[in-house]
């Protein structure tokens, strides 16, 4: 059952990165949209993510619950030493969720819209940036349980070039996923071309930030190169991702709009795979060479047992409903409304 729980943890992180990521990315795309196109983009975006945005962010809650129930020592350590980036991320989540809902549901459309838009766009950038920083600092070996000063314990645990680069990389991945997703969400040719350009831009930015992560890792003395390319799984995954990237662009130019989503999702899955598999089962690396391991720092057997059961049980209810939701709105998004009166 332990491996079922670990599988769910990994899957929840992946789904949050993909679905929540595309959701954040929609705001990032809006940030890079000229004012002339803004309201059109907002409409496409709203139709695309409106019905599912709340569900997308549930994956974060599932991740947190699995951590604090199943692996409380890991949750507690991260909560203490990454308090500041977690708080900033939370403020981003508050700002973004409420601004997104407010701008649609405000009964009067006036100057307030501009404020909601700005908050939505900035928080769409800040939140994944800090999510990435948190992810980066969990493996940067800068968390120091022996630290004696405030700065060492609570600031330098996450504020370093490597973690910030991972944060930027995360932002570009989100923008990339959103652009690829939105290409399939619009019926207009001009709009599609615009999202294609955005996707290309985000793709280049992601490659650039990815390179930056390697440079920063080298500068900080983190053997990232070895983690990624030092074993056959990493090599295979990276090669497969690169191949799928080439294939994806070929198909995009050919006008295929839906299969490319699968390929983009595959690339991100491979990236998460290579960055987690090397240290498995350790998910947090500490400064003194210590680590927090999913196998050693887990809850009691009975807890893991019931957590796994709850997750399996939950999937039976959630997954079909979620697929039906996405399917319904995909299928019906462009269909004319049926009138019932």
């Amino acid at each position: 059952m332990l491996y079922v729980v670990i599988g769910y943890l990994w899957a929840a992180i992946l789904l949050y990165l993909l679905l929540g990521g595309a959701d954040f990315g929609a705001g990032i795309i809006e940030f890079f949209t000229s004012e002339a196109n803004q309201s059109r983009t907002q409409k496409t975006l709203y139709r695309a993510i409106g019905p599912i945005w709340e569900a997308n962010h549930m994956w974060l809650i599932i991740t947190v619950v699995i951590l604090f129930v199943g692996f409380p020592a890991i949750y507690a350590t991260m909560s203490v030493y990454l308090h500041i980036p977690l708080t900033i991320m939370l403020l981003g989540i508050i700002a973004r969720g409420t601004a997104f809902a407010f701008r649609h549901y405000d009964a009067v459309v006036d100057d307030m819209q501009g404020l909601y838009n700005r908050i939505f766009v900035y928080s769409s950038f800040i939140t994944p940036l800090f999510l990435g920083i948190i992810a980066g600092s969990s493996v940067s070996s800068h968390i120091d349980p022996m630290a004696t000063t405030f700065l060492d314990a609570y600031v330098y645990s996450w504020l370093d070039w490597f973690s910030v680069s991972v944060g930027l990389f995360t932002v570009t991945i989100c923008g990339y996923l959103a652009a690829i997703y939105l290409i399939g969400e619009t019926a207009s040719h001009g709009e599609r071309q615009r999202f294609m350009r955005k996707a290309r831009f985000m793709n280049l930015a992601a490659v650039g930030c990815g390179a930056l992560v390697f440079v920063a890792a080298y500068a900080e003395g983190i053997p990232l190169f070895n983690w990624v390319f030092g074993n056959w799984i990493g090599l295979t995954a990276i090669s497969a991702a690169t191949l799928s990237l080439v294939l994806m662009w070929y198909l995009l130019v050919k006008g295929k709009r839906y299969i490319v989503r699968v390929l983009a999702g595959f690339q991100i899955t491979m990236i998460l795979l290579v960055t987690t598999i090397h240290h498995f089962p350790n998910i947090v690396l500490l400064k003194n060479g210590g680590y927090l391991s999913l196998l050693e720092h887990r809850g009691h057997d009975k807890t893991i047992e019931s957590l796994g059961t709850a997750l399996l049980l939950g999937s039976v209810f959630i997954l079909p409903a979620l697929f039906y939701l996405i399917y319904s709105f995909q299928k019906k998004a462009h269909a004319p409304l049926k009138q019932n009166f």
Partner: peptide
Amino acid sequence: HAGPIFGMPFSLEGT
């Protein structure tokens, strides 16, 4: 300490 003990309702609440 409490997470593994009282976490069950939270796991179900997620669903």
